[in-house]
Design a protein around this nucleic acid. Structure first.
Lengths: 157, 157
DNA sequence: TATGAAAACAAGGGCTC
DNA sequence: GAGCCCTTGTTTTCATA
């Protein structure tokens, strides 16, 4: 069951999802509260596992990662051994930024960041070599309309 | 053109993408370097826009966001006005965590995080009410195999 | 001369009352 | 919500390759 959050908790989480580099002092000021309650909430939220980690976000363009592909995979293989190898391969490859197993006629979806279409092709060939073959549709992203790490903070009923 | 990164830059970025909560002191120790060079690199990387921002990552489960949908959209509408409204709608909705315009026969892909399939249906109805209609395939994620904010740090040629 | 080590200062976090 | 202490970020200086 989800953690119970009040209005202040939500304000803190929203702020930290946007920018975690602020000092505690500044954060409290921005939220119109004072240090102690804010700090206590943050610790509580960390202990409860609501706040998982703190990271920096890099700019793909500045790193030369100009291509972002979505890969839709249909496969006939469903045995445990194949699945283990497949998942291990995905986890081992840093280009694979996201991977989900889906319900419906598409079995898996991947999001892959690479420097170029050529680099994607290299990745693709290496992957299908490693874990047998499947039916794959690769689509290039032309524009990232939105991309946020901030999760929606829905009110609990 | 991408920023030129040396081995130390890459080590710093990799470390900060994993965990940005460490103190500068600790980070330098972990990397086997000393404070000054690490601090200089970080500032350089921020100025160059390689490091975009610093955020906390929350746990979807702890927030009660048990459902994650991928939405594949095909549309016949391509005029600028429709596109503006569509993109504005996506940006305004916090449930939409990611949105890309694609090349190929799927026009758009969305990633949407909601508490439940019911909540997704509400979202879906509200969206198509707001920006006319399109051909939509919604698929529920059964399992998040991988999901990282860490971009691959490829060596430059 | 450019780079890293180290030390000094200022500021902010962590904790108590 | 105010205040303390001590860690940490930031800057400067010094040594070194």
């Amino acid at each position: 069951m989800p953690a119970a959050l009040d209005a202040l908790d939500r304000k803190i989480l929203a702020a930290l999802q946007e920018d975690a580099s602020r000092s505690l002092d500044q954060l409290a000021r921005d939220l119109g509260a004072s240090k102690t309650p804010v700090w206590n909430r943050i610790r509580k939220l960390k202990d409860a596992g609501v706040i998982r980690k703190e990271v920096v976000l890099l700019d793909p363009d500045a790193l030369g990662l100009d291509a972002c592909f979505f890969v839709l995979i249909r496969t006939s293989e469903h045995d445990a051994q194949w699945l283990d190898r497949f998942m291990a391969a995905l986890k081992a490859r840093p280009e694979v930024v996201e991977a989900h197993r889906l319900a419906g006629d598409i079995d898996y979806i991947l999001k892959v960041r690479v420097p170029s279409p050529k680099a994607y092709d290299d990745f693709y060939r290496a992957l299908i070599k490693e874990v047998s073959i499947f039916n794959v549709t690769s689509t290039l992203s032309m524009e990232e309309i939105k991309g946020t790490t901030a999760l929606p903070l829905v009110e609990q009923a």
